[in-house]
Amino acid sequence: MFRNNYDNDAVTFSPQGRIFQVEYAQEAVKQGSVVVGLVNKTHAVLVGLKRNAEELSSYQKKIIEIDSHMGIAIAGLASDARVLSNFMKQQSLGSRMTYGRPLPVDRIVSQIGDRAQTNTQHYGKRPYGVGLLVAGVDAGGPHLFEFQPSGMTQEMVACAIGARSQMARTYLERNLEKIAGSTRDELITHGLQALKETLSQDKELTVDNTSVGVVGLAPEGARGRIESFKLYEGQLLVPLLDALERSEAGEETKEAETMEVDS
């Protein structure tokens, strides 16, 4: 029987130049429930769909605050994400301790990227089975980064990873210009809308299965330079989901008005 000889460890290339263990790790990301991230000029938003393993269990955490200026959304092995998030929290705290400065987002992203890459080049190690979206603000404004188990990181204006995330990416691509010029609340609604696109027919967004994280620059005249990372879960989501419903209703009436009707 045919057997793949090139996927026993993460250090061996296949003759086609692929590293199967890394690809399998990326498959683990695709199995995780979807998370969406997007930025405009002032804010970065993370939105995630939470899954519960069984009726009686609680929902899996999808968004983690790293520091007051940064948070991550995870897709894939949650336990690997905890290792990475603990590392990120330590680094953030270290930066505040030694320099009195919040850690720049690109700095921590390249650090976890380097760690993940190391795992793909050492015998006896395995890649992280998790993909991350890192959202935060620093001196350069709001940022969103994508992180993959291969160690690849890149800055994004909008991104979605996890199961059925293609639908969300399609939505984000179609609405890129609207997102760029949106307000804080519109940005959240776009995130929720993108998330909703990924749902199968019989599912909908509820206060139990949705998670939203927002971080950004503080509005003019506010105390402090940044609006700290805030996680919306449970009842806090009600106004956000209502806003989503209202915007959908608005879109539909607009469509109905412009639709040509046979007379």
């Binding site: 720049p104 620093d138 001196a139």
Partner: peptide, 12 residues
């Protein structure tokens, strides 16, 4: 880093 040196005198 992408945004250059962001350490000010207080950080230093």
């Amino acid at each position: 880093s992408a945004h250059g040196n962001t350490l000010n005198a207080k950080n230093l």
